[in-house]
Nucleic acid binder design. Sequence first.
DNA 1: AATGAATGAGGCTTCATTCAT
DNA 2: GATGAATGAAGCCTCATTCAT
Lengths: 188, 188, 188, 188
Amino acid sequence: MAERREAILDAALACFVDQGFHGTAVPQVAKRAGVGVGTLYHHFASKDVLVNALFRKWKEAIARAVFTAFPPTAPIREQFRVVWGAMKDFALAHPDAFAFLELHHHASYLDAESQAMDNRLKDFTATMLTQAQADGIVKAGPPTLLMELVFGAFVGMIRAHWEGRAPLGPDEQDLAEQACWDIIAERI
Amino acid sequence: MAERREAILDAALACFVDQGFHGTAVPQVAKRAGVGVGTLYHHFASKDVLVNALFRKWKEAIARAVFTAFPPTAPIREQFRVVWGAMKDFALAHPDAFAFLELHHHASYLDAESQAMDNRLKDFTATMLTQAQADGIVKAGPPTLLMELVFGAFVGMIRAHWEGRAPLGPDEQDLAEQACWDIIAERI
Amino acid sequence: MAERREAILDAALACFVDQGFHGTAVPQVAKRAGVGVGTLYHHFASKDVLVNALFRKWKEAIARAVFTAFPPTAPIREQFRVVWGAMKDFALAHPDAFAFLELHHHASYLDAESQAMDNRLKDFTATMLTQAQADGIVKAGPPTLLMELVFGAFVGMIRAHWEGRAPLGPDEQDLAEQACWDIIAERI
Amino acid sequence: MAERREAILDAALACFVDQGFHGTAVPQVAKRAGVGVGTLYHHFASKDVLVNALFRKWKEAIARAVFTAFPPTAPIREQFRVVWGAMKDFALAHPDAFAFLELHHHASYLDAESQAMDNRLKDFTATMLTQAQADGIVKAGPPTLLMELVFGAFVGMIRAHWEGRAPLGPDEQDLAEQACWDIIAERI
DNA sequence: AATGAATGAGGCTTCATTCAT
DNA sequence: GATGAATGAAGCCTCATTCAT
């Protein structure tokens, strides 16, 4: 049943976020999902397959959230605000998923397909910036670097919130959004 | 001998950065350090003690680098540039150490003392910002949030460089430094 | 399966009697039981849990053997003979179990429950003696001391037999039983 | 120095009584003795050599105590009383040594010489009994069996005292001595 | 003689995975 | 499809012993 599959993915997410991939035992995931170990292995051939499936599920989810909200014809400043807002909404709605995706270092067990997916959103964003640089709205320089700075700031904010070190009410969200824009904005 | 202790810490750093804490076997660290397992346990009572010693060693090193460079009487913009530069120099000089400290999620095995040390530098920076806010140079809002945005952007930049996704020559460094300052700078 | 559990307990008994608790390796027990190490840990959470389970199993067995045989209404001399005989039968039928229970020093790994069980049979016997002292059949003095003397003599006999230093045919058994009774008997 | 040798033997006794031979680590003995591990190995070639030396030291001590006190020309009842008393004095004066010798199962690591020494005292006692049987003072039957019963009763008494289960003041000692004699005494 | 850091085989235990039910 | 007992390789750590100082 697809229901069990989801239960397993949810349990795996909770465990991996708490203890990391190598720190989590497969039977522990099965127990938390309320299924037998054998059942887990019916749905996922191995622990590696499971973690990759989990990674892709949520990378897809966040990408879908962003692409769905994206306004292709709006001005760049508005596009930025929407993309930033979609990611913020996602991170607040699924804190564990975001923590799993961005606060952990997955390199040693992600397969090629998962790693490719990792960069899809970033590539899209970098492209967006290149256009805006031509218009003189965004600072000159490697768009990848600018995008990584923005994304890093965003992750830093979410991490601080997640770890209880920073409030994130509406006012703080507006402040942070503007601050992130200032990273790339060409000064008038 | 203190020499062996350092060899073990170096080997542990290399292993932990590659495969994570739980993904690294103790005998693997010993082998890489060129010592027997027993010797490793002679110097560090357990794998947990080892990882905490490693964490503190490098957190102290980076804090020392920043505090040594810090110019107490300089204007805030200059202080920012110096602190940012000290961290950048450190990250480029000790990429593994920086990756270990900031690119991995340590929560599940750091002890209280290590966790306290984790925030020392951030607290200092936040304090620095509070002063500058009063002068109207830095944006209003929770200083912690601003500082986390800056720190996040910095880590994002280093991570991208570390993973080969962003160049970081002198020009890019200047660009990134200015972009990080713009995060917190009050617009004129 | 309960069958495997018993196989493990039997193997543990054989190993512990030969080499002692600390002198026995867990994989050795598993091998002797014909199971994998993991299976052993499936049934017993640790080596300590295993040795306590083994201790209780046989303490219960010997207590059941004695209590089942005990004739509540018979005269004291007959009660003594029956109890002594039940213990002797048990010791000869399960020499390894008796050696494990009484010839080894368990203090350093028995838990509270096992230790409590250790004294149940002795307490019962001491109570039995108190009654007989009132009747003038048994020597005056601390019943615990008398009981320990009898029990010690019994263990010494079994140990000597177990180590091949004393025969224990029917005649010797009768002699020993009478000798043990003489320990506590009030001389006419 | 012989002094250090004794310190090591004393420390080993304390450790072995508490945790058994296999449960005691050599460095632990060295630490308790206040010497380095290397020093311990200068005096005793191995852990096995150490435990055998310890065993012999105390087996010799108890044998000497008994043989010194033994009155060759006294009547058997008096000889018994003296031997019993010498052993009792020894057990109360050196409780750890007695516990080590008689409450632990040493078979798996004692060498041939130690094992031979183990039975010297018992052989002597058995011989003593044979003479007395001829005189009709002691029960007929295998002298070894009678002796083991007496020795077992004695050990049971000391063990109960050692474990805090039986008082052993002057009155109790007299009672126990008489009870032990009754084990072998021919009833009038 | 005395020391204790160093060693690595071996001990206890975990865990990814399989398979009979 | 679901289960969980069973497995043994591999992980963390200990400890008897050595050896350079």
